[in-house]
Design a protein around this nucleic acid. Structure first.
Length: 198
DNA sequence: AAGAATATCAACCGCAACCGG
DNA sequence: GCCGGTTGCGGTTGATATTCT
């Protein structure tokens, strides 16, 4: 287990925290390029970084790794996140495995800041759904289009409407939507629509 | 233009599982 | 089986950016 810096040895005092500098990033990238990932604690020491191995690992996995995808979550990804969250709950790392290039941290943040917010709103104002939707529908064609692009008429090239199959091998034989008690309720669907109005 | 409020996201923390000795 | 070190995960925090008034 990790020991907290309760002791005040000279070594502990040298451990850096907080945002990574460009120089630190450079050192870490270079070191991993030359030596591979290995054991993080010794990697941090060998590379000369005054960081914990844990911090190095996190920085590498969430930010520096070459295959990390930056930028906005797409409608396709959003749909997947919501579907997988409905199925697995807060199993962020598990969800992230189905979104190549996305990290569990990123998905977790996305969920908390964007999706959860709307779901809470829907819970707080359950009757707001229809009226607001209707308002949007009746006053703004743009909104209709966006909703359609994101959810209603969304059709990625390799997605034929069968999400189970789209997701993959894992789930082709498993539960149907109807039988899954975690599946979408009205509030979820409402939130999805709200999200795509953003 | 400025200050307040809110949103976003990188990084930290604590815990549990895993692994080798 | 026990112990210490390491890794991975999910929750939370705090700094920064953006939007609102």
């Amino acid at each position: 287990m990790e020991k907290k810096g309760g002791s005040s040895s000279s070594q502990d005092a040298e451990v850096r925290k907080g945002p990574w500098t460009m120089e630190e990033d450079f050192i870490l990238i270079n070191y991993i390029a030359n030596h591979g990932e290995g054991v993080w604690n010794s990697l941090a020491r060998s590379a000369g970084l005054k960081r914990t191995g844990k911090s190095c690992r996190l920085r590498w996995l969430n930010y520096l790794r070459p295959d990390v995808r930056r930028g906005n979550i797409t409608a396709e990804e959003q749909l997947l996140i919501m579907e997988l969250h409905a199925r697995w709950g807060n199993r962020w790392s598990k969800i992230a495995k189905h979104l190549p290039g996305r990290t569990d941290n990123e998905i977790k943040n996305y969920w908390r800041t964007r999706i959860q917010k709307h779901i809470k709103q829907a819970e707080t104002f359950p009757n707001q759904n229809n009226s607001e939707l209707q308002d949007n529908g009746s006053t703004s064609n743009d909104h209709i289009c966006e909703v359609g692009d994101g959810i209603e008429s969304y059709s990625p090239t390799n997605y034929d409407g069968n999400l189970e199959a789209f997701l993959d091998p894992l789930s082709t034989t498993t539960t149907t939507h109807q039988s899954n008690e975690n599946f979408w309720n009205d509030e979820d669907l409402w939130s999805m629509q709200l999200l795509n109005n953003d």
